[in-house]
Amino acid sequence: MTIEFCDSVEQLMAKVPDGAHLAFAKDLAGAPMAAVRALIRAGTKDLRIVTVPTSGWPVELLVGAGVVSSVETSGISLGEYGGAPRFNAAIKQGAISIKDATCPAIYAALQAGEKGIPFIPLRGVIGSDVQAYRDDWKVIDNPFAEGGGDPVLLLPAIRPEIAVFHARRADRNGNVYVGIQRELTVLAHAAQETLVTVEEIVDGDLMASEESAAAMLPGVYVSAVAEAPRGAWPLGFLDMYTEDEAHLAEYAALARSDEGFASYLLREVHVAGELESA
């Protein structure tokens, strides 16, 4: 298996076709914001997104840009900057279809995807409206219960077509350092393809020492990598940089109106993108 090293984030995101089933991890695990902007610029449409298990800024921007047809999530929020205005507006207008989930259900369904099994049972959830609105989930009686009964929820496996995330570094074999952000490993194991942006590409084999190997996503799961320094901006990234508070606050204010969001998109994604990709 060969891993492609892309010269730019634009090139990396050009691999995402219209209608792709795309997975993002929660923002704190490494939000691929440069990749999100490149995806919007590429004009890719009808994305079907699943969040692991939540998201914020990536989904907010993609939904606002009108390139998303459905979102499966346990929660979409901009954290300290409040609700996600474009996502919320799209829900209210019925512009996207929403599959509300709960965090452990998304994790469990991905774990089924990792294992190559068709479904997985999960405790809880029964009797909630989360369950009531999910036609793709089933409830059966626990086949192992003595005397019958014991209803349990079954979830179909999730195998996203493409997972996209941002990480600290990769080596030239495409091994990606994910550190303690283990949701990224589960996500990449379950996904059919994984596209990664990294702060830096380094020489040497990161799988060579036991100490660093434990923190790695082996390149066998990775399809392509692009270097994107400050690739999570305007969000912060681990201990490497803090969030751009002024920028995020300005976004939250602008995105309250259609016009404000349109001006943000033009300035920060399209015009700025010409510089970003230059």
Binding site: P53, T54, T73, S74, G75, I76, S77, G83, A84, F87, N88, I91, K92, Q93, G94, S97, I98, D100, A101, T102, C103, P104, A105, L122, R123, G124, V125, S128, D129, V130, Q131, Y133
Partner: peptide, 21 residues
Amino acid sequence: DYPATKVRWPGSFGSAYLYFM
């Protein structure tokens, strides 16, 4: 009325599970 709720909050997070467990 779900799903096109007039006010949308982030979502259920882990509540549908942790409330049971």
